[in-house]
């Protein structure tokens, strides 16, 4: 979780990701951030993220990103 938060904080240090339930609704990430975020998550966690999995449900908040990465590491995806 800390690593994910660190990646997000590097994107936008001014945003409070820890206390947000919906990054998209609160304009904390946009489509261009997602491109960078996916690249960094792949490198940090050694996973491959398929375009089909790049949906708001997986990137809604810290918990959904964490669960998404855990599923990928377990060889599962949505």
């Amino acid at each position: 979780m800390d690593k994910i938060l660190e990646i997000l904080k590097n994107l936008h240090p001014e945003h409070d990701y820890s206390n947000s339930d919906d990054f998209i609704k609160e304009s904390l990430i946009d489509s261009l951030d997602v491109v960078i975020l996916v690249d960094r998550l792949e490198k940090e966690f050694g996973v491959f993220i398929d375009g089909a999995d790049v949906v708001p449900e997986n990137f809604k908040n810290l918990n959904t990103i964490r669960n998404f990465i855990l599923r990928l590491k377990d060889g599962k995806s949505l």
Partner: peptide, 10 residues
């Protein structure tokens, strides 16, 4: 309509 758009919220 594209994913991750926050235009409506803005």
């Amino acid at each position: 309509k594209i994913v991750f758009s926050s235009l409506k919220y803005f």
